[in-house]
């Protein structure tokens, strides 16, 4: 565990909590892509199956459980409790276009051809693109609420911090996992355009609006 990894994990947790609180306090999930949230839940479910087979640390297990419960909670709020506020007209990304190719790739490119390892690989690949329905939704409506942009910034920062953690681990421990590194870089690159808008607009007190 190093500081980049820890701050990355906390940033990830912060993102999930920001989104949950936004939905809970405003009693609305307007502007949030339910499809991205379903994909993130699928990511956690397929990645953390090793909770039952492989104990690493209390920190590791507790964080996994928190991520699972909070992400499933978000899906529950969006599709059940506050379903009336869910903006499905704008959430039109076809997730099968992500899940099917990612599923195929995880069978072809993995470290080990075993069920748990393929599911872990699937979750890593899927996470890298799971934000696309949310970004697509923002590009369709042309704007995002400020709280939603804080959520996206925390979520994007998490994988960027993991990249720094991987560089650090490579030099200090000789540890590297190419699948995680490549997918993590793809994931971070997808946020670059958003990071630019966040820094140039949201941090200066303006709402995130895309140029017409």
């Amino acid at each position: 565990m190093n500081v980049f990894r820890l701050v990355g994990d906390l940033s990830h947790l912060l993102a999930i909590i920001i989104l949950l609180l936004k939905i809970w306090k405003t009693r609305s999930c307007a502007g949030v892509s339910g499809k991205s949230q379903i994909l993130f839940s699928l990511v956690f479910i397929t990645r953390y199956l090793d909770l039952f087979t492989n104990f690493i640390s209390v920190y590791n297990s507790v964080m996994k459980i928190i991520y699972l419960v909070t992400s499933l909670g978000t899906v529950y709020l969006m599709y059940f409790k506050f379903k009336a506020t869910y903006d499905s007209n704008h959430d039109t990304f076809r997730i099968e276009f992500l899940v099917v190719p990612v599923g195929g790739l995880s069978f072809l490119v993995n470290h080990d051809f075993t069920p748990l390892e393929i599911l872990w690989t699937f979750s890593i690949y899927l996470e890298s693109v799971a934000i696309l329905p949310q970004l697509f939704m923002i590009s369709k409506t042309g704007e995002a609420e400020t709280i939603t942009s804080h959520y996206l910034f925390a979520l994007g920062s998490y994988r960027a911090l993991y990249i720094v953690n991987w560089v650090y681990r490579y030099y200090t421990e000789g540890f590297f996992d190419l699948i995680a590194i490549v997918a993590g870089c793809v994931q971070t690159i997808l946020y670059c355009d958003f990071f630019y808008l966040y820094i140039t607009k949201v941090l200066k007190g303006k709402q995130l609006k895309l140029p017409a």
Partner: peptide, 10 residues
């Protein structure tokens, strides 16, 4: 060292 078995990351 290619670590895959012990996944301590989240």
């Amino acid at each position: 060292k290619l670590a895959t078995a012990k996944k301590d990351e989240l």
